[in-house]
């Protein structure tokens, strides 16, 4: 059951990660800030011959409110004659709670359930900031821009969909020498990129889906010693990278702003925008006590 869940919880960050590197600038310095990162969208657009309307970097994800000004009256929808204050702006996404009766009554993610043998009652895989990541890394705008160009990833049609992941679906083909971005020899990303679940539930054993305590998961208050941004005192324990102190999201492992990274000892794999180096599997061992 536990394996099933872990397998099922699945896997977005590789997609985020592998495509991040090449979505924007083709090369960047790890830890060089967002201006020197693949998320410098103005730079990316200029490189592709399409100027952005602004040189601002933040506007793409930190949506401006444009709340005032002469145009406001013109924004009022003609068919919504009466607006209440709660709809003055669209509400940013924060995810759906594990125990949200709305979500459970809705049957959870039915495709997810069917794929993984669960019944109704699931949780929001894209809880927290992950949904914002996936609004671009959606498989169409940004996802398939892997290392060797757009065409380097081979999705084998013969693969059982059991092996495909739920949110970021690209699976590199081991047999394709152009594709070196796979994680794990089985091509099954669900093993190593779970997001959206309650870390506390997994570590302590209480879970909406009834899974047992995993003794190999460290307590959420475990001090983090392998943090790349060593000067960042805000991250002292595992829970500091969890959404609302509890949920694992894309940004638990990935530093979207490229502020914390440093070169690894081997100069190799602190990319793509990882918070902890993969040298010596430090990233995995941050949470897994093995």
């Amino acid at each position: 059951m536990k394996k099933k869940l872990l397998a099922g919880i699945c896997a977005v960050t590789l997609v985020g990660s592998a495509s991040l590197v090449f979505a924007g600038r083709l090369s960047y310095d790890n830890g060089g800030g967002i201006t020197n990162s693949p998320h410098n969208m103005p730079a990316y657009l200029q490189a592709k011959g399409a100027a952005p309307e602004t040189s601002q970097l933040c506007v793409f994800c930190h949506t401006p409110h444009n709340a005032t000004g002469s145009g406001e009256a013109g924004y009022n929808p003609l068919w919504n004659h009466k607006m209440d204050t709660s709809t003055a702006n669209f509400i940013p996404y924060e995810g759906i709670d594990v125990n949200d009766p709305d979500y459970i009554a809705g049957g959870g993610d039915t495709s997810f359930n069917a794929l993984n043998g669960f019944g109704a009652g699931a949780y929001d895989v894209l809880k927290g900031p992950s949904r914002l990541c996936m609004s671009c890394h959606d498989g169409v705008t940004a996802i398939d821009a892997f290392s060797s160009g757009n065409n380097s990833v081979t999705l084998s049609y013969a693969d059982s969909y059991d092996k495909k992941i739920m949110i970021g679906e690209n699976i590199s083909d081991n047999s394709n020498p152009a594709s070196s971005n796979y994680f794990g020899a089985t091509r099954d990303l669900r093993n190593d990129h779970p997001i959206g679940f309650s870390y506390i539930d997994v570590a302590d054993g209480e879970d909406a889906l009834g899974m047992a305590k995993d003794i190999n998961i460290r307590n959420y208050a475990t001090p983090v010693t392998t943090w790349l941004g060593a000067g960042k005192t805000s991250v002292a324990q595992i829970k500091d990278v969890l959404f609302k102190g509890e949920f694992l999201t894309c940004s638990s492992c990935h530093d979207v702003h490229n502020t914390d990274g440093t070169k690894t000892a081997g100069g190799s794999f602190a990319k793509p925008l990882l918070r902890v180096t993969t040298d010596g599997s430090a990233l995995c061992l941050m949470c897994h006590s093995k």
């Binding site: 013109g74 924004y75 009022n76 929808p77 003609l78 068919w79 919504n80 669209f90 509400i91 996404y93 924060e94 759906i96 949200d100 709305d102 979500y103 009554a105 809705g106 959870g108 929001d124």
Partner: peptide, 13 residues
């Protein structure tokens, strides 16, 4: 000119 919008975050109907 905007007439209306529909849809919202969440999982319900």
């Amino acid at each position: 000119k905007i007439l209306m919008f529909f849809g919202q975050r969440g999982s319900g109907p």
